[in-house]
Nucleic acid binder design. Structure first.
Lengths: 208, 208
DNA sequence: CGGCCTTTTGACCCCGTTCAAACGTAGTGG
DNA sequence: CCACTACGTTTGAACGGGGTCAAAAGGCCG
């Protein structure tokens, strides 16, 4: 039936090349999908948290990038064939997967839009708003703060900036009294102001 | 049954707000989905050409941005309910839509990765490779050249650069003997070199 | 205590932006 | 056929955000 599997930081959970008969759902920890280039740089395209499907792509064609654990992580493993069989008899399940894929699309479009924008401060602020909203869905936030067990390097790879600059943006946000970030715990001090600054509209976040 | 509709340049084909009972398929011309910001800037997140679905999002939750014609365009209009009904009786159709959504995702991830990269030349080169591959699928290329009825401004909004800089990148590519671009017709003079330069891997393009 | 991985800070520099103006080129109407 | 206009392309000059390189200063763990 369903089983779980544990990964330690840095381990690959799924790679676009493989054609695995499994479907992975995050049960604990953080993971990221990323695309790498010859010059060593990488772009993180998705953060995966509890409840997220790692490889929806196993249900159809089309996949890019590698999913790797960013923290110690646990995933639940489903059998792909069992899922596709269930889809055949329950059309609503198929529609649910389409919806999930579309929500992931929407998030990618928002990321793309913010990546194209110029001020990196806005971009990072938006990411914080998004993560807060997503973590809230799965009860991983306390009021306006949450654990963010990621290194600067990871945040930089997600927002398309250098680690050095990411650090400077953070300093600025702290100085502006927008956030605190200590020991991998982020607190949003002025949620309203941050949302306005980042033009955050939670409409694209997956509803519960 | 199915009907068609025509749009002139700039007209909105679909907006994420509306909850239309229709599904649109591009039959002629070019369109783009874009996200806009308060400051007037916009980011194009998808180019739509013949055969592309404008609003897969009508089949589920999750949508961002507005789809607008970039040239005079013709779309075929399908009835959404008819499609969802067909999906219920033909599970393979549902899987096909999942695949389409996943391929769109893959493209978005690639765009995101190139947006995060630093050299804009690479980014634009990659876009040209992608467009060529996609247009080839629908027989709209002649050897290594194709019509590209887009303004610099549009290309700039897609690649996240200013119109001025986009023009300069183009000049450089011309000087390097990589391409010519005249009267909205692009010719790739050194396809192999361009692909290598842009690290283009067509694996993510929708197969025929 | 000694490494190793992160975070922080400083200095320098370049890619890409912005502002502006000039230069096509196509379309419209007299 | 020639203005006149509107839009797109091209070019110049100046500025600045963010990158790169390098080194110091914290944590964290064996």
């Amino acid at each position: 039936m369903t089983s779980t599997r544990s990964y330690s930081r840095g381990e690959t959970i799924f790679d676009s090349d493989e054609d695995s008969p499994e479907l992975h759902i995050m049960s604990e920890g953080w993971a990221a999908r990323s695309v790498s280039f010859k010059d060593g740089s990488r772009q993180i395209t998705d953060f995966l948290i509890v409840g997220d499907l790692c490889d929806l792509s196993a249900l159809g064609k089309g996949s890019v990038g590698r999913v790797a654990a960013l923290t110690p992580a646990v995933v639940t493993v489903l059998n792909r064939q069992a899922v596709t069989a269930a889809m055949a008899s329950h059309p609503n399940l198929a529609r649910a997967f389409i919806s999930i894929a579309l929500i992931e699309q929407a998030t990618l479009r928002v990321w793309l839009a913010y990546m194209g924008r110029h001020e990196k401060t806005t971009h990072l602020g938006h990411l914080f708003c998004e993560l807060h909203a997503r973590l809230r869905r799965v009860d991983l936030v306390g009021d306006h703060s949450f654990d963010l067990p990621l290194t600067h390097e990871v945040l930089a790879d997600a927002t398309g900036m250098s680690g050095v600059h990411l650090n400077r943006v953070l300093q600025q946000m702290r100085k502006d009294g927008l956030i605190t970030l200590h020991k991998h715990h982020l607190e949003i001090l002025q949620p309203q102001r941050l949302r306005e600054l980042a033009e955050f509209d939670p409409g694209y976040i997956r509803p519960l």
